[in-house]
Write a protein that binds this DNA or RNA. Structure first.
Lengths: 139, 139
DNA sequence: TTGCGTGCAAAGGTTTTGCATGGCA
DNA sequence: TGCCATGCAAAACCTTTGCACGCAA
């Protein structure tokens, strides 16, 4: 992970501000591209990928896929502390990100360390699944 | 999910036996294709994808991606130990991917459902942290 | 014999790369 | 001014699809 954030370009700022505005939902390259074009500041696809790669590398953005489908999704990671003691639950249907305070977290961490020798970083770990609101929806 | 397993073809048997032999790790289409070719029984890529789709549909194989990277991974699911839940632990230092079948982890899913109304999809969920080998290493 | 499975090749979509140009520091 | 970032287009990939032929039941 690099800390160098490079030059400040118009494209980079637009891209990041869009990701932040969509931090509670799904975003993909097509959506980003369409948004930037609609804003009157179109950005080349290659640039979007390159900036995204850098942001993921810096840990500012998380990349994932839904059900192994083609096409990655991206989401801004709020780096503000205070989330270290939270579970993060992300609904793969509606994209909502749920923060939950729960004592069970420390039990999981203890178990991982004791049985698997693995120290969990709860600020990076996200549980993907279906939220209660989407349970009955068609998927 | 269908139960019809279709015809028994040489390709299908080879493919499944390879997946079973790799059940503790992950495999992708390229690896499967290379293995089958090396065995002297090459199988067309389209057939591999089609058989894999069917196996996933039947619940015999799990499909997932790591870090949203391009290219799906596949893993055989042993239907005899249905109580086991499979989770992935990824070391953010050395990048190693650890596969775990652990009963305690199914407790996590129960907890998430009971206390947070959230159905965890373990094929998408990855725990990030530090593995035992890297515990003492500089990061 | 019947129809599903296979192989090949082409199509479709996503992501990466090469290279010349533009723009930040 | 020196580099890094950008754009465009082509390339590289991964996955799906159409079609004719082969093979299991």
């Amino acid at each position: 992970m690099k800390n160098d954030s490079g030059y400040n370009t118009r494209q980079k700022e637009k891209l990041l501000s869009y990701l932040i505005s969509k931090k509670d939902g799904h975003t993909n390259v097509a959506g980003i591209s369409a948004y930037l074009a609609a804003e009157g500041t179109p950005v080349g696809t290659a640039t979007i990928y390159r900036q995204l790669d850098r942001l993921v590398d810096q840990g500012l953005v998380r990349r994932y896929t839904i059900d192994g489908k083609t096409g990655a999704c991206y989401q801004y990671v709020d780096s503000n502390d205070g989330c270290h003691q939270h579970f993060h639950l992300k609904c793969k249907n509606c994209g909502v990100l749920i923060h939950t305070d729960c004592d069970h977290l420390s039990e999981i961490n203890k178990h991982m360390l004791a049985h698997h020798g693995f120290t969990v970083d709860s600020s990076m770990t996200v549980f993907y699944g279906i939220c209660s609101d989407c349970r009955g929806d068609a998927v």
